[in-house]
Design a protein around this nucleic acid. Structure first.
Lengths: 149, 149
DNA sequence: AATTTTGCGGTCAATATCATCCATGGCTGA
DNA sequence: TCAGCCATGGATGATATTGACCGCAAAATT
């Protein structure tokens, strides 16, 4: 990981379909040198996948919500994590510092989707308390990267 | 936007470098039909950009924090938004419902970076109160998509 | 009512671009 | 000296991209 690697990642994150020769010119390397570095970066797992950013509204997912979760004492934390990992609506699920256990970021078609999600959690005894916060608008252009797998 | 468009986006989000012919086979279209749809989707802005997901730790950004911001009464909200949009550390900045004004998601090299960010906000009179929450671990594999532009 | 026009979405074949791989050799620092 | 990194150039096979053409359905025209 040197500066050139970082620049390659920068360029590719701006446009993942950019040609290797093009990148080479920008970083001062030959096509094959860039190719070598790319292979190394993906093999090492520095680059996880090539993907795309889409317009969430166009995909019918206008509701963005953050949900704080406090797990009950006896909750099966592993099961909770598995649930979060499987649900395509849950884009992020972080164990966090502070008064709450987890912070979940999710995207749904409608508020009904959010309600259904909370109901599922409750039904499985996976929530002692929760608090949902809706995102109204975003200062940083809001993007949507579909969940991996 | 029909089901085929959605499936194309699904396939490409899993691997943005997948060949058009491959995608065509999966959705039952010819290569050029897929190409046309892709061009249309990007022209319409449904697809915003092709990008990559990287390992945040490998890039030297291990600290993930969520920061609640309450703006002062007299704050210049436009300036605040501009600041958020410009700072590469701020990955998201949502105007939210509830007791706080904004929820910011940011990634930094270290806690010092978080502190510096908060200091900047304070110095510019852009924060009445704030509360920072650190992400410890993630149930959904934690990814990092470098900020656009 | 019948016919023409138009646009959309598709196929197919030809072409140009591109990634990929390989062999060779130069340079540099341990 | 050796290992790592890179340039160069050519060969090869994938791949994107383009253009010519077709079918169909809705709208417009006769």
């Amino acid at each position: 990981m040197d500066d050139i690697d970082r620049k390659i990642i920068d360029l590719l994150s701006a446009d993942a379909r950019r040609a290797l020769a093009d990148i080479g010119q920008n970083v001062g390397l030959s096509t094959s040198a860039v190719n070598d570095r790319l292979r190394r970066l993906t093999a090492q797992g520095v680059i996880r996948r090539f993907t795309l950013e889409a317009d969430p509204e166009a995909l019918g997912l206008p509701v963005l919500a953050f949900v704080w979760i406090a797990l009950p004492e006896q909750a099966d934390e592993a099961a909770f994590r598995a649930l979060a990992a499987d649900d395509p609506a849950i884009l992020e699920c972080h164990h966090v510092t502070g008064a709450w256990s987890y912070l979940i970021k999710l995207r749904t078609q409608s508020l009904a989707g959010l309600e259904a999600f909370l109901a599922t959690l409750k039904a499985r005894g996976m929530v002692a308390r929760s608090e949902s916060v809706l995102a109204l608008s975003s200062a940083v252009p809001d993007t949507f990267v579909p969940k991996a797998r």
